[in-house]
Amino acid sequence: MFGRDWTEKDQSVIEHHDYSYIVYKSFLKYLYTGVISLPMQELLELLDLAIVYCETKLERCCIQEIKRGISIQNIDFLRSIADKHKKEDLKIFCLCLESRNS
């Protein structure tokens, strides 16, 4: 982005509007500290950002945090997120939790 023919190479400030400020801030915090502390909605957004930037370790950490926050109320939604991102381990976790609570 900062080399060759990209327009960003000459900009002093680069704006991104794909994700919220809190998610970008958490992304940078994770890169420097390895710590994630976000509510579920932002955590899902951070997972998406990690996938876009191919940060597989962050993806795994996000999935672990998501698993900790799964409840009966959000399990269907989180399973759909797992399907969307093709995260089989999260999908299987949701299915196992559902079968235990049926």
Rank of each mutant, 00 (worst) to 15 (best):
1 M>R: 15
2 F>A: 02
2 F>K: 11
4 R>I: 04
5 D>C: 11
6 W>C: 02
9 K>D: 05
10 D>M: 07
10 D>G: 10
14 I>H: 06
15 E>S: 12
16 H>M: 11
17 H>D: 15
18 D>E: 04
18 D>Y: 01
21 Y>W: 04
24 Y>V: 01
25 K>E: 12
26 S>V: 07
26 S>Q: 10
27 F>H: 00
28 L>S: 04
30 Y>I: 03
30 Y>A: 00
31 L>I: 07
39 P>D: 05
39 P>F: 00
40 M>V: 02
41 Q>D: 15
41 Q>N: 15
42 E>H: 00
43 L>W: 05
44 L>T: 12
44 L>C: 15
44 L>H: 11
45 E>F: 13
46 L>E: 03
46 L>F: 03
50 A>C: 08
50 A>G: 04
53 Y>A: 05
54 C>A: 14
54 C>S: 14
55 E>P: 13
55 E>G: 10
56 T>K: 08
56 T>C: 05
56 T>M: 11
56 T>A: 05
57 K>Y: 12
57 K>T: 12
59 E>H: 06
61 C>I: 01
66 I>Q: 01
67 K>S: 14
67 K>I: 12
68 R>L: 13
70 I>V: 15
71 S>W: 07
72 I>E: 14
73 Q>F: 09
74 N>P: 06
76 D>M: 06
76 D>K: 13
76 D>P: 02
77 F>D: 14
78 L>V: 10
78 L>Q: 02
79 R>W: 12
79 R>E: 14
85 H>V: 09
87 K>C: 14
88 E>G: 10
88 E>V: 10
90 L>A: 07
90 L>V: 08
91 K>Y: 12
95 L>T: 10
97 L>I: 01
97 L>Y: 03
99 S>I: 12
100 R>W: 06
